[in-house]
């Protein structure tokens, strides 16, 4: 059990490329923190710095009560699940799980006990004698988890562990990992580029972009109050609509925008906050033409174009009242649903 403290971490590669900058982050004991961002945002690098696989150029990293900057991965009391699982192909499942324990001089009966226990927890007890290549993708994923589990480490590190699974298994494993972590109460750092995975699993989300932290918060915090235009665009699917405030004012919505700060020149609207309610009082009202209907089962996505003929928006509805493509619509959103941003800095204003 351990807390992690990242005190102003930097990573600069030999060629001068800055991969990670100014990372200040406290992770509480037992917390499940997800690092999320597009590819190349530095999230994996940061995770590997915590693991000890990348050197830390600058700053201080504390795990538990030790500064670990100079420690080897094996000395940091961490365990890691890799994206491609990194199972030793020539060893049986049992030996894959036992290898790290043997290297640490754990006694035989204890190894046996821990491997059986982990295998039972992950329901891979029947495969202990098999080689990794004889297992399915989902089973390999469980073995990779098991290898981390048997170590009983202070911290779990996950590097996109579900990205090689098909969609259905991914959802199932998402739930299992989360439940397992709750039960064991082990501090966990989890990297993913999938914002849905990040939202559903995290106690706290850390959104990274260009090697810097954009926002830290609970998933609902981040979703309902994105701190920057980047976060607004990255979290949530379909993405938040971004409209120039000038466009809204020019179309008779000056009143609805009067409550926003004067420098709010960009306004965000979540697709699900927009309705077709032509008679609702107040709020923002926009005329648009329906380009395409995208039925997705429980909900339908409407791709529309505003009357200027250029600006595109997405609307998410659970009921579609007999619309046909090409129809003219009036969109409505309540004033409370507006997210004001300053375009130049990208910062949220309220």
């Amino acid at each position: 059990m351990a807390a992690i403290v990242m005190d102003n971490l930097h990573k600069v590669y030999a060629g001068g490329v800055r991969a990670v900058s100014d990372i200040m982050l406290d992770i509480a004991d037992g917390e499940f923190v997800v690092l999320v961002g597009p590819s190349g945002c530095g999230k994996s690098t940061l995770l590997r710095m915590v693991a000890g696989l990348e050197t830390i150029t600058e700053g201080r990293l504390t795990i538990g009560d030790r500064v670990v900057n100079a420690l080897e991965p094996a000395e940091r009391d961490i365990a890691m699940v890799f994206q491609n699982y990194a199972l030793y192909p020539h060893m049986s499942v049992f030996n894959n799980l036992a290898y790290g324990l043997r290297n640490r001089g754990v006694l035989k009966p204890e190894i046996e006990r821990r491997v059986r226990e982990a295998a039972a927890m992950l329901e891979i007890g029947a495969f202990l004698d098999r080689k990794p290549r004889q297992l399915s993708g989902g089973q390999r994923q469980r073995v990779a988890m098991g290898r981390a589990l048997v170590r009983e480490p202070a911290v779990f590190l996950f590097d996109e562990p579900l990205s090689n699974l098909d969609a259905k298994l991914r959802v199932q494993m998402r739930v299992e990992i989360k439940q397992l972590q709750r039960r064991l109460g082990t501090t966990s750092l989890y990297v993913t580029h999938d914002q849905l995975e990040a939202m559903t699993m995290a106690d706290r989300l850390v959104v990274l972009n260009g090697g810097r932290i954009e926002q830290v918060g609970t998933p609902m915090d981040v979703y309902s109050r994105p701190a920057t235009t980047f976060v607004a665009g990255f979290i949530g699917s379909p993405a938040m609509n971004m409209l120039p405030a000038s466009l809204l004012r020019a179309n008779g919505n000056a009143d609805a925008l009067s409550g926003l700060p004067g420098n709010a020149d960009l306004v965000g609207l979540r697709p699900e906050d927009i309705g077709l309610d032509a008679v609702a009082p107040g709020g923002v009202r926009l005329q648009a033409r329906l380009d395409l209907l995208e039925p997705a089962g429980a909900e339908t996505h409407l791709h529309v174009r505003l009357i200027d003929g250029k600006t595109r928006m997405t609307v998410r509805l659970s009921h579609v009242p007999g619309l046909t493509e090409g129809a003219d619509l009036v969109l409505h959103a309540p004033a409370a649903a507006l997210h004001p941003f300053e375009a130049e800095s990208g910062h949220r204003l309220l």
């Binding site: 693991a51 000890g52 696989l53 080897e72 991965p73 094996a74 961490i78 365990a79 890691m80 890799f82 994206q83 491609n84 699982y85 990194a86 199972l87 030793y88 290898y99 790290g100 290297n103 640490r104 290898r147």
Partner: peptide, 12 residues
Amino acid sequence: EELMEAARVDGA
């Protein structure tokens, strides 16, 4: 790459 990294994490 990950095999070597996993081995290092495993204390080899």
